[in-house]
Design a protein around this nucleic acid. Structure first.
Lengths: 337, 337
DNA sequence: AAAGCTTGTGAAATCGATTTCATAAAATCG
DNA sequence: CGATTTTATGAAATCGATTTCACAAGCTTT
């Protein structure tokens, strides 16, 4: 390997015939530097293919230009899409993003956040509003900006960007009630350590109760096609099968649809199926899925903007509730009597 | 804010009644340190909730425990899944992952890699084998380990983990030829800056030619459902529509399926549709998709293992070709005559 | 033209860890 | 038991940038 000795700032200074301080000035805050000198420095940096040492820079300046995100998984489009736009926006502003996954485990989440703090991140994106006390304490103590996503619960702790999950549950129930359904079941997500799934379920139950109805059954299933498939099977084989089912995600709903197709159960004729998330897949199933849109990309963008904003401004943007949108397609219909 | 002054290593040393050097020893290589002293140090670190300063550490030790990945997008499951397992494996080994997206643009890729180098990453994951010369030069010069994914092209430059894209194209063609099809078209991906799409197309064409056939048409479509939908429309409205279509991804294939459904074109009766990637969605469409499995998760894992391996060992693991697997489901069938 | 500002620059201190080198104390050996 | 090796530790140098402080030279201002 040729492996030339790494070019350092001082080498640039030498080549440009000035002091390291001046090089630093040119390369950073662009403070008062004579134009001729500036040119020489830039030229030298270019010639030497100088790449600054980020560690040294952040050690001295206490600015790392690093952000972190801890999400449940990247294997679900709803999170991957958010991270995609989060990353894009941060990068546009010179901030790099470190990603960690928690598998929906808040203890693991804490460990990951600790690691992020050690790496010197200046801000952190978390999912949901349920976290270990230590996690928040660590961020507060270190004065690291953080924002919760997929939730808009007014909380006295962190800032949040997302939507009201309880409203989402209600909106789903509302739609089915409006269609005349009374035997409504839910294929909910796993609620352990998932405050969002809990809220949606609560909203669902509350809306039913407000209409003098009770849920026909609430099953907890993993957010995967198999889970939706198996859950639908249990529901439809019960003594009183539902005429409408709310699913925790479009993936689960697609699995439910698959079960119905395999067993010649008409959707929406016999049973209406409602998804959640509004993933691409919703337009590709037969029938296409009625679902509730989750603005994942927008959340990522807004979260980024929040974290990029100067601390003073952040005060005014703590809670950002995004509108929920019911997307009506072919998998739900009025109850036949 | 209470904002206690940050605890530094020297504070731990003070509290434990020893020198910073000893604290460092305990916290790192665990070199010969008296057990009693070690306990005291660990206790002190715990009590003070000490979190090491990563910048200082990597500045001095030239070990950042940071890796980077530049992928086209996280908005496509095939990449998100790879990154998910890559990240998991790296984190297990104490390495954090910085993610950047390039939107399939190798100039952008170069910029992102530069940024990664500046952040001090010790290794980098790239997608495909087509990169700017500068990108590779930079990594080589800085002695940063890197690995290409989704490709197994024997290259004199980097290591690679993936599969032979040309074989994949051939495998797809082979399947359809075996089923008796002769009018075969391709809804390929965008080939600009995408060496993998190019290879798959070339393999497809080569296999047809080896069987004295010529492609009925090759359309380039975005890797999205709309693209597959629109492409299928063009193909089926042509003077001689194909009896079989190879799609660039399951998403595009699902879009193609949708077009057929909307226009009462029987699949696989009138036209067979072959997907690529083996995403979850393939099992949720009607009919379910015949597809070629891409071991995205495994690639991420293997890439991580490669990068985590000591440099000496890496020599022996440069190219790792994973097997391709045809997954036959309901969207392809023998040609009716 | 003297006093007071600006502007542009460099010398040296500094960020918080790791690492090298030296050394005291303890253990082993012939 | 004196000589030698081993073990455990600390003092000080160091990584590569940024930042503070000082100061010279060139401009204003009166």
């Amino acid at each position: 390997m040729p492996d030339e000795p790494d070019v350092k700032l001082i080498d640039v200074a030498r080549k440009a015939g000035c002091s390291p301080a001046t090089v630093s000035r040119v390369l950073n805050h662009n403070a008062k530097v004579n134009t001729a000198t500036r040119e020489k420095v830039l030229q030298a940096a270019m010639d030497l293919a100088y790449v600054p040492n980020g560690s040294a820079r952040s050690l001295r300046s206490t600015k790392s230009r690093l952000a972190g995100a801890v999400i449940p998984t990247l294997d679900h489009a709803i999170y991957a899409t958010m991270v995609n736009s989060l990353q894009a926006r941060l990068t546009e502003n010179g901030v790099s993003l470190i990603i960690n996954t928690s598998s929906y485990d808040i203890d693991r989440e804490y460990e990951q956040v600790r690691l992020l703090v050690e790496r010197g991140v200046e801000s952190v994106v978390l999912v949901g509003a349920a976290h270990r006390r230590e996690t928040i304490a660590l961020l507060e103590q270190r004065n690291i900006a953080y924002v919760f996503t997929y939730t808009a619960k007014p909380t006295d702790i962190g800032a949040a960007v997302g939507f009201d999950n309880e409203k989402a549950g209600r909106l789903a129930a509302r739609h089915l009630i409006d269609l005349g359904h009374t035997r409504i079941a839910m294929l909910g997500g796993i609620t352990i350590n998932n405050d969002r799934a809990v809220s949606r379920r609560d909203g669902f139950v509350a809306e039913l109760r407000d209409n003098n109805l009770a849920p026909l059954g609430i099953l907890e299933t993993p957010y995967q096609a198999d889970g939706g498939h198996a859950g639908m099977k249990r529901l439809m084989l019960a003594d009183t099968p539902p005429t409408a089912v709310i699913c925790a995600s479009d993936i689960a709903a697609a699995g439910a649809l698959k079960y119905c197709r395999q067993n010649d159960i008409a959707v929406p004729g016999t049973v209406s199926v409602l998804g959640f998330d509004n993933l691409d897949i919703g337009e590709l199933t037969t029938p296409e899925l009625t679902t509730i849109d989750v603005p994942a990309g927008e959340m990522g963008r807004i979260a980024a903007d929040y974290l990029l904003a100067p601390a003073a401004q952040r005060q005014h943007m703590r809670i950002r509730e995004l509108p929920l949108r019911l997307v009506v397609r072919g998998s739900t219909a009025a109850l036949l009597r």
